[in-house]
Design a protein around this nucleic acid. Structure first.
Length: 898
DNA sequence: GCTCTGCCGAGAGGA
């Protein structure tokens, strides 16, 4: 906060004076807002704005002068002059910008005819968002904020299906029978059937409507593909920006072939992203001259509007295309209802205006929080102004959020201004809400926005395009220099299994684990973010990934890099829920009552009024599998008219309770809707339910917990007696042998512990345990990595190795825990202090639990100290004598050579 | 201080 005040003072000083001021200050702001942004010149230039001043030039016109730097030391300053309308770009000192154009003697000039300025270029905004901002910037920003408030319609479903049919046809054939077949096949796909079900539409209805389009598909193919002579193609009007003005704009356009479908491109040059329906190779015949271009082809199934929005989308795609190949200079807009196709030239003027809209939008998205003028209070910022166009507002899907934000947030600020004509509309849209509801909305919007902006969540996607793989590898979240090996296996549409190997040697030390999300890029600048997916398997030689695109179409020589996709905090779901909670519907009203106004939840008195009489025996039978608190929770839930909160520590059997509930409801003939904030929670429930269907008998087996652990968890952690997951603790090895931890950039590890863990695992397997019954847990990724590597070099099969948290809600027969930490200076990591995590770790084992760690070090952690004291009193701690360690190393040596 | 949790997601049409 202090830094910002200093900055504000700075901004009031004059231009040249400012430029002389301490560089650290700017560095501070830049670091706070744009962590680890790499400043650089060249194609991907990133400049830090040091100062902004508005000046009048000789002609009396306004110019903005920016003092900028691309050097991390902030020493080498350059000047950027913004002329004409570029003056209005809302750029401030401390901002990061990208410049397109020419720089002569350290001066950039961006004017109406030449050059672009991209504000916050690492915020990538989609083509459709920008196109929709033409009519209403506020709507575009609201749509980015409250995403889910736009339920899909019949027309959208038809649109999606027709897109797919066309995309399949262009790689196959436009023959009528083939089109028919492709259409039928597409309609049958499960995701479309689901959507039809949701919209209450029959398959026949959709089929009919889709088939109505097919003749136009044929017509288009007949017009634009496969002809004998170039003049057989329809005449069109198209001048490319590079054509000389003398050239006739009349030409024939021939679509030669489809190069890609649904190509997804991120453009950190223009701050854009998007998916191109079809990328086509096109011949433009003009007189005797022919130009070949690879262009975006945008499909539309709705009205043939040739609207500015549609055309703008195409223009933006020409900018995206430049990330991968030569400037197409134009794109194509095809209306599938009629087969009519319009060429869309990408003129400088259009691109300039669209990029200016992008900048405005980026500004709004970046500045979501402001300070109140009077009291410097942190508050939500105003959104772009409400427009005064009843027609546009009438059908706007963001109307509710627009009015709500205006009333709950903007109208509470000093000096807010709302167009007077819109006030009645805003009042009408929000009249169902009480003051408490408006305040709730405003508060949670602010909290969620602040959370998304917190330091933790400033993820740096941009490192993929700003940092070479070799540099990124040092952080452990990237692997470069990979080549694709073996065939790509198609699992289904949109899931392709790829194998990668390092071109030379083994895969370097990395944090990447199975299950991590990754972004696959080519190491070349033009090939980044080719595909996304997750790691399926990783060992010292090979990474197997499940990706959303098939990369076998690319040349085999391409060098790839995998970057771990850092989770960006998802506030979209809660914001969407928040918006839904404010809707004028019966359900939302009830929820507002309960959640905001704290109406007590109601319960009926008798189970007999809830459960059908004839289900009594079945229910009784199902309930047998639960302990007392679980049954009590179950009863409460069944009697609930509103909601019931079931609260419990990890391992206390919440999921089991829910599963049993589902089974009861199912047995009584109710339909059940499972929803969850997390996917994994629902997955766990489904997994357990599936188990019930298969064997079942598991329910009857009461698992016994070792009394020592039971006592401990009950006393220190749970207080509840409903521990389900039951571990039999056998031994705790106290490693009296030298087993120091290693702290490096990739994390904390302990090679000795890793070796012992692997050795013990091998013993269990030799004793007849199935590798799938064994789980290895360590709190640090680096340790998992080392254990994985040792396992990979052994003859041990697939033993699951993962972090504590990944075991949440699951059991293994045997669990080995490596605590890793071992040092003399008593360095305490935050990680092990978390007793909830400890609880998860020690309650995952059904039959045998082995904890491996350095007792003196672990005693530094209060929760562990309690556990160790407890185990000590039960004589469950076993020292590992140094003589044994020597033997162990021998054995391990042998074992590794095996 | 090195863990994890919320994640497919840009665009499907309408005026």
């Amino acid at each position: 906060m202090e830094q910002l005040d200093e900055l504000e003072l700075l901004m009031e000083k004059s231009f040249w004076e400012e430029a002389e001021l301490p560089a650290e200050l700017f560095q501070k702001k830049a670091v706070a807002s744009f962590p680890r942004t790499v400043l650089s010149r060249g194609m991907d230039n990133r400049y830090l704005v040091l100062a902004v001043s508005t000046v009048q030039n000789k002609e009396g016109n306004c110019e903005k002068h920016l003092v900028i730097t691309a050097s991390q030391s902030l020493e080498n300053k350059e000047l950027c002059i913004l002329r004409n309308d570029w003056c209005s770009v809302p750029v401030e000192p401390g901002d990061i910008i990208h410049l397109e154009g020419d720089c002569t003697s350290d001066t950039w000039i961006i004017d109406k005819d030449f050059g672009y300025l991209i504000l916050y270029p690492d915020i990538l905004i989609s083509g459709t968002s920008i196109a929709s901002s033409i009519r209403c910037m506020r709507r575009a920003v609201l749509s980015e904020t409250f995403r889910s408030s736009d339920p899909a319609t019949r027309q959208m479903l038809i649109g999606t299906v027709l897109h797919e049919v066309f995309q399949k046809a262009i790689n196959n054939s436009f023959a009528p029978e083939k089109l028919q077949e492709l259409a039928f096949q597409t309609i049958q796909e499960i995701r479309h059937l689901k959507e039809m079900y949701r919209l209450n539409l029959s398959q026949d209805e959709i089929k009919q409507e889709v088939e109505d389009y097919l003749p136009s598909f044929c017509k288009w193919a007949g017009d634009f593909m496969h002809k004998n002579a170039s003049t057989d193609f329809p005449q069109m009007q198209l001048s490319l920006p590079s054509d000389s003005s003398k050239d006739n704009s009349t030409c024939n356009i021939e679509v030669v072939k489809s190069m890609d479908i649904e190509e997804s491109i991120w453009s950190p040059r223009f701050g854009l992203k998007g998916k191109i329906d079809v990328t086509v190779g096109v011949k433009i015949h003009r007189g005797c001259k022919t130009k070949y271009k690879i262009m975006p082809l945008e499909l539309k199934t709705g009205k043939e509007s040739n609207s500015i929005e549609h055309r703008s989308q195409v223009v933006l795609y020409t900018l995206l295309s430049q990330e991968r190949r030569a400037d197409p200079e134009a794109g194509l807009l095809l209306y599938l209802k009629t087969g009519q196709m319009y060429p869309v030239p990408a003129n400088h003027l259009d691109k300039r205006e669209l990029l200016k809209l992008r900048n405005q939008m980026a500004f709004s998205l970046f500045h979501r929080i402001s300070k109140s003028a009077t009291r410097q209070k942190t508050q939500l910022a105003s959104l772009p102004q409400i427009i005064e166009e009843e027609k546009t507002c009438k059908y706007c899907s963001q109307m509710g959020n627009c009015a709500l934000y205006s009333r709950a947030v903007e109208q509470q600020m000093d000096g807010s201004s709302v167009p007077i004509v819109m006030l009645p509309k805003i009042e009408e849209e929000t009249q169902h809400l009480k003051q408490t509801h408006l305040e709730y909305f405003s508060l949670w919007c602010l909290m969620l926005t602040l959370e998304s902006q917190s330091k933790d969540n400033k993820k740096n996607h941009q490192n993929i395009w700003l940092m070479p793989a070799s540099e990124m590898e040092k952080s452990g979240s990237c692997i470069g220099h990979l080549i694709r090996t073996e065939h790509v296996k198609t699992i289904c549409d949109g899931q392709y299994l790829h194998n990668f190997q390092r071109k030379h040697g083994a895969i370097p030390v990395t944090n990447l684990l199975a299950g991590d999300r990754v972004i696959v890029s080519g190491e070349e600048r033009s090939l980044f973010a080719l595909s996304r997916g997750y790691v399926k398997e990783i060992n010292t030689t090979t990474v197997t990934c499940l990706l959303d695109r098939n990369l076998s179409v690319l040349p085999e020589s391409i060098l790839f890099r995998l970057d771990q996709e850092e989770k960006s905090c998802d506030i979209e779901t809660p914001l969407g829920n928040l918006s839904k909670l404010m809707e004028n519907t019966f359900v939302s009203k009830k929820l507002r009552d309960l959640i905001i106004d704290f109406r007590e939840p109601q319960f009926t008195s008798y189970l007999s009024s809830v459960l059908p009489h004839d289900a009594k025996d079945t229910v009784a039978c199902i309930l047998k599998g639960l302990n007392k608190p679980q049954r009590q929770a179950m009863k409460k839930v069944l009697l609930s008219k509103d909601y019931t909160l079931v609260v419990g520590m990890p391992g206390t059997g919440k999921t089991t309770t829910i599963c049993t509930l589902v089974r009861i409801l199912y047995a009584c003939g109710f339909s059940v809707l499972l929803t969850s904030y997390t996917h994994s929670a629902v997955d766990n429930i489904l997994l357990k339910l599936a188990k019930f269907k298969i064997g079942f008998l598991r329910l009857g087996q009461t698992q016994k917990v070792h009394p020592a652990i039971q006592q401990f968890t009950e006393q220190e952690i749970c207080r509840s007696k409903s521990i389900k997951s039951l571990a039999l603790l056998e031994e705790l090895y106290n490693s009296q042998v030298p087993a120091p931890e290693q702290v490096e950039k990739g994390g904390v590890s302990n090679i000795t512990e890793a070796k012992v863990i692997v050795f013990l695992t091998s013993i269990f397997i030799k004793a007849g345990c199935s590798p799938s019954d064994i789980g290895i847990i360590a709190p640090y990724r680096q340790q998992l990595k080392i254990i994985n590597d040792l396992l990979a070099h052994s003859s041990i099969g697939m033993v699951e190795v993962n972090t504590v948290d990944k075991y949440q809600g699951r059991d293994k027969s045997i669990v080995l825990v490596s605590f890793v930490r071992s040092n003399k200076d008593g360095t305490v990591g935050e990680l092990l202090k978390d007793w909830r995590r400890l609880n998860v770790a020690i309650t995952r084992a059904k039959h045998k639990l082995i904890l491996l760690g350095c007792v003196p070090s672990l005693n530094c952690y209060p929760p562990l100290e309690k556990l160790l004291n407890h185990l000590n009193s039960e004589k469950l701690i076993i020292d590992l004598p140094s003589r044994e360690h020597g033997n162990l190393c021998h054995i391990l040596g042998d074992f590794q050579r095996e």
